[in-house]
Write a protein that binds this DNA or RNA. Structure first.
Length: 365
DNA sequence: CGGCTTTGACCCGCGC
DNA sequence: GCGCGGGTCAAAGCCG
């Protein structure tokens, strides 16, 4: 979060590149009914051209997993990722100065985070995936935030403090910094953009909300969830795009060390009830369909080794021809440089920023 | 009563 | 050093 804190309207692109260098972008998955999404090709603040070209708006992410998650599907998805920056970026680039405030004015209140996911399981229209390495999400590479271990440490330290109303000396911990050496590495993150009226999308796992924070420059809060399974350190953050309130940004951090409860219970995934799948559930679903091989490759993108994300060659070998790809094509995509430029001047906006960077990085020749 | 959400306080790193 | 903002904690409350 270090870099993010620069002036939202003039952050340093070079600085960003420096930290985002290992990021990569990921494919879009469209799922569910897309009829409610109003595409505005001329409005840079929307997901330009996102739906207009979609030959099959009902082909869903879950559909891919359920019935036809195969090599082609995945490769198509990857092909898309190569040109998906525009898709993600529009909500970020441009302007923002005036619109960020009014973007969500009156659209919905701030009381999100209530996990009423079941009431509308079919809302999601599309989602995109973006991964980011450890440095992502504002955590400058050098000031790693805490992982579970550090969480525990902190918890310990915090106990006395709470008892004494914070007057207790927390300084002691600050002084005793033998442990501070080992900067815990943040888990890889990957984000989904999902068009949904529901904030917390059902993904087959059980989550416990442990916090909610207001997002700077956004009327929508960010909710923090943790997997309820013991010893599973996966977290996710959910927030709504302030520029397109219909879009929910879900960021996963870490890997589930267990099976997807939904899959376990049913022996298969009821994908119709799954609004969005985390990589693990994706993996589970893919495996169920005998596509484990490719799903692993696919998922490997989310968990890059050595912080280096590489697209498998065969993904590049397959020209973009899927509906997913066309869906991603931005009317302004031929204005590559222009777009990038805009992205580089995107406002500081937490998760969205992460997305932009990971995607924009993809554009490098 | 257990599991979950809410919510204010706290921690921490960073920029100024 | 201070304030800001992201992230987390944990007590209190809610709910089935």
């Amino acid at each position: 979060m270090s870099n993010e804190r620069k002036n939202p309207y003039q952050y340093d692109p070079f600085d960003y590149n420096h930290h985002e260098i290992n990021k990569s972008s990921f494919p879009f998955f469209n799922y569910g009914n897309s009829s409610t999404y109003q595409n505005q090709p001329d409005d840079p603040q929307t997901l330009n051209g996102f739906e207009s070209d979609h030959p099959n708006p009902f082909m869903s992410f879950t559909d891919c997993l359920h019935g036809s998650l195969d090599y082609n599907t995945l490769s198509k998805a990857f092909d898309m990722s190569c040109s998906s920056s525009e898709v993600i970026s529009p909500p970020l680039d441009h302007d923002n100065n005036s619109n960020k405030q009014q973007a969500a004015a009156g659209v919905r209140d701030h009381s999100v985070g209530t996990t009423s996911t079941t009431e509308n399981p079919s809302t999601p229209n599309y989602s995109s995936i973006s991964s980011s390495s450890n440095e992502a999400a504002g955590a400058a590479g050098d000031d790693q935030v805490l992982d579970e271990d550090s969480d525990h440490k902190r918890k310990k330290d915090k106990q006395p403090k709470l008892g004494s109303d914070g007057v207790h000396e927390d300084k002691s911990k600050k002084g005793s910094k033998a442990k501070k050496k080992e900067k815990p590495q943040r888990e890889p993150r990957f984000a989904f953009l999902t068009k949904s009226e529901v904030d917390h999308l059902e993904d087959g796992y059980r989550w416990r909300k442990y916090g909610q924070k207001a997002v700077k420059n956004s009327p929508y809060p960010r909710s923090y969830y943790r997997c309820t399974t013991q010893k599973c350190n996966v977290k996710k953050r959910v927030e709504r795009s302030f520029q397109d309130p219909s879009i929910v940004i879900t960021t996963y951090e870490g890997q589930h060390n267990h099976q997807c409860p939904a899959a376990t219970l049913r022996g298969n995934l009821n994908l119709n009830a799954v609004g969005m799948l985390s990589p693990n559930s994706l993996l589970a679903a893919a495996s169920l369909n005998g596509s484990a091989r490719y799903s692993h490759e696919f998922l490997a993108q989310f968990f890059p080794v050595n912080n280096q994300v590489q697209l498998p060659n065969h993904f590049h070998d397959h020209p973009p021809s899927s509906m997913l790809y066309s869906n991603l094509m931005n009317p302004h995509s031929h204005h590559h440089h222009q777009q990038q430029q805009q992205q580089l001047h995107a406002p500081d906006y937490g998760l969205l920023q992460d997305l932009v960077h990971s995607f924009s990085h993809k554009q490098e020749p």
